[in-house]
Simulated scan of single mutants.
Amino acid sequence: MIPAAFDYAAPSTVDEAVRVLAEAGEDAKVLAGGQSLLPVLRMRLAAPTKIIDLGRIAELRGVRDEGDVLAIGAMTTHHDVQRDSLIAEHAALLAKATATVADPQVRHRGTFGGAIAHADPAGDLLAPALALDAEMVIAGADGRRTVPAAEFFQDFFTTALAPEEILVEIRVPKYTGWHAHYEKFNRVAQAWSIVAVAAAVRVEDGTIAEARVGLTNMAATPVRATAVEQALVGQPATPESVRSAAAHAAEGTSPTVDANADIEYRQELAKVLTGRAISAAVAG
C-alpha cells in the first residue's frame, strides 16, 4: 500500500528540527531509522501531515566518553552500538541486547534512540536501558531536559516525550568490569521477544557484589526485577544462589495475554530465562 501524502523536512541541527516539529503541529512524525514508522505509513495506520527526518543531524550519531557515563546519540544505528569499543568495555549489556535485534539489515538502518522512543514493550533495548539506569536527554522549544529511564517509559508505546520534543541522546553510567548477558525467547529467529531478560553483575572473590536485572515484555513497560537483584547481592556466585534469586523474577510483573503466551506462561518463562541470563553473566 502507498502512504498518504505528507510534507517532508530534513533539518541539519537539533534546534532546527525542534523548530520545524513545533511549527508542524501534533500531526507531524519524526523519522529516525524508519524501521517502525515506515511500515505503519505503508499500511496507512498513521497519516502524518509532515515527516521530519533526523538523518542529516550529525550530532545525533556516535558514542562519546564523558567521564562516568557514555553518551549515545539517538541516531546511532544498532550496528554501530553493537560494535562500539566503548560500549563493549563499559556497557556490555547494550551490545549483547542489540545483537539480538531483528536481522543485519534492520540493525544497519534502525537506531538506538528510535527503538527507545518507540517504546514497544517487546523491544529488546528498553529493559537493558532500564537495568543500567540510563537517562534520556530530550530537546524541546524550552531547551533540554533529562529523564531517567524509570520515568521515561510510561505505557504501551508511550514515553515522557511530548509531541514537540525529540530524543537527543541516551546517557548510560559506566559498568566497567561487569559481566552481562541478554537471554531472549522467541518462536522464530529475528522475531520480537515473547520474554527476555537483561542481566549485568559484578562479582568479587566469588560473591555477587552488585546486580542489575531488567525484563522485556513482562508489562506495558520494561520491568526492573528488584527482588531478583536484592536476592543476588552478597550471595556466592553459584548455580544454587542464582536459581533461588531467579524464582523472584515474576514478582511485580503484569504480562499481557496474546497469541504467543498467557500470563502464567510468561511468568514461568521469566524465571527460567532470568536464571539462564544471570548464570551466563556470572560465567563471563
Results as ranks from 00 to 15, higher is better:
residue 88 A to Y: 06
residue 161 L to H: 00
residue 270 A to S: 14
residue 50 K to Y: 04
residue 51 I to V: 13
residue 246 A to H: 01
residue 23 E to R: 14
residue 132 L to H: 01
residue 168 V to D: 02
residue 75 M to D: 05
residue 138 I to F: 06
residue 32 A to F: 09
residue 237 A to K: 12
residue 45 L to Y: 09
residue 257 V to W: 07
residue 98 T to Q: 10
residue 201 V to Q: 03
residue 1 M to R: 15
residue 247 A to N: 10
residue 179 H to N: 11
residue 254 S to G: 15
residue 258 D to T: 15
residue 37 L to N: 00
residue 156 F to S: 05
residue 156 F to N: 13
residue 39 P to M: 11
residue 15 D to V: 08
residue 80 D to V: 07
residue 246 A to F: 05
residue 167 L to W: 03
residue 277 A to Q: 08
residue 192 W to P: 02
residue 61 R to Q: 13
residue 240 E to Y: 06
residue 41 L to H: 01
residue 62 G to C: 03
residue 138 I to R: 02
residue 7 D to T: 15
residue 106 V to Q: 04
residue 186 N to R: 14
residue 50 K to V: 10
residue 241 S to Q: 14
residue 254 S to L: 14
residue 99 A to M: 09
residue 251 E to C: 11
residue 35 Q to P: 07
residue 275 G to F: 08
residue 107 R to W: 09
residue 173 P to F: 01
residue 248 H to T: 03
residue 27 D to F: 00
residue 280 A to P: 08
residue 216 T to W: 04
residue 209 A to I: 04
residue 218 M to L: 15
residue 151 E to Y: 00
residue 34 G to Q: 04
residue 22 A to N: 07
residue 54 L to F: 03
residue 61 R to K: 15
residue 19 R to K: 14
residue 131 A to W: 03
residue 214 G to K: 01
residue 198 A to T: 06
residue 208 I to E: 09
residue 249 A to T: 03
residue 96 K to V: 01
residue 57 I to D: 09
residue 130 L to S: 02
residue 277 A to W: 01
residue 35 Q to F: 01
residue 134 A to C: 09
residue 160 A to K: 03
residue 263 I to W: 15
residue 29 K to W: 00
residue 99 A to G: 12
residue 138 I to M: 05
residue 139 A to I: 02
residue 210 E to R: 12
residue 111 T to V: 04
residue 91 A to F: 05
residue 246 A to L: 14
residue 189 A to K: 13
residue 174 K to W: 01
residue 192 W to R: 10
residue 155 D to H: 08
residue 271 K to H: 05
residue 21 L to Q: 09
residue 218 M to A: 09
residue 157 F to M: 14
residue 202 R to W: 03
residue 159 T to W: 01
residue 134 A to D: 01
residue 215 L to W: 05
residue 175 Y to T: 06
residue 94 L to I: 14
residue 190 Q to H: 12
residue 221 T to R: 14
residue 139 A to L: 07
residue 267 Q to P: 11
residue 166 I to Q: 03
residue 222 P to K: 13
